[in-house]
Nucleic acid binder design. Sequence first.
DNA 1: TGCAATACCTAAAAACATTAGGTATATTAC
DNA 2: GTAATATACCTAATGTTTTTAGGTATTGCA
Lengths: 117, 117
Amino acid sequence: MSNKKLYRGSLSTIILKLLGDNGRMYGYEITQRVKELTKGELKITEGALYPSLHKLEAEGHLQVEFEQVNNRMRKYYSLTEDGTKEVVNKLLEMEMFLQTMQGLLQPPLSSTTEFIP
Amino acid sequence: MSNKKLYRGSLSTIILKLLGDNGRMYGYEITQRVKELTKGELKITEGALYPSLHKLEAEGHLQVEFEQVNNRMRKYYSLTEDGTKEVVNKLLEMEMFLQTMQGLLQPPLSSTTEFIP
DNA sequence: TGCAATACCTAAAAACATTAGGTATATTAC
DNA sequence: GTAATATACCTAATGTTTTTAGGTATTGCA
């Protein structure tokens, strides 16, 4: 990911979610889709993406199909049965995290209870 | 942090925000406060906290005061002028991140536009 | 013809957290 | 009274994930 370092740890969740939504995707496609969806906010670097895909595959969450398109090879990834369960876990985990974070970082009471007539 | 690995990268933001809200805190206090505020969801480990505090201090965001309480030393941290600016940046960055993440991971259109009569 | 885009990949380094220790005092429980 | 828990600081080795910085090769556009 090129942007800030906050995205650390969330890459596999993003990959799994996208594959859950789209059925199957190839690596390069994932980088482009994320750029689109986040309006350029988040740019996944290939140095992070490919190792992450390989790890998810090794863990049994993803399966691979090769396809030749325009004389260029594409490696399509899709969720395994196990991967489908993993998406649910990861998304719940992420929701929990986002909530916890919002709770922690929202303005303190002293400033939210101010009365401005 | 004990929980999952999602918190990676957000520790310094949490520290700065807490110090912004509370004026000054010592390390151990920070771990306890975070545990309270997140109802046990997030447990900052000391192995993560202390190096992070030292780094923020080295970067000029925090300043230190020692105090002896009950025969035990406390190292109180507070924001420097520079640190006060940094809190704002970090919080904006984090808000951006949370929004981006929510946008990315919310249910896809195909499932939200379903019509159930 | 040369550069950007598409498409895959890896290895070294950096960043950050976990794990697992260490020191020391105070308080609570048995 | 003594052992465990809480308070309070710290570090070093390890592990995970990301960045940085390359590499290969084809296609399409200027």
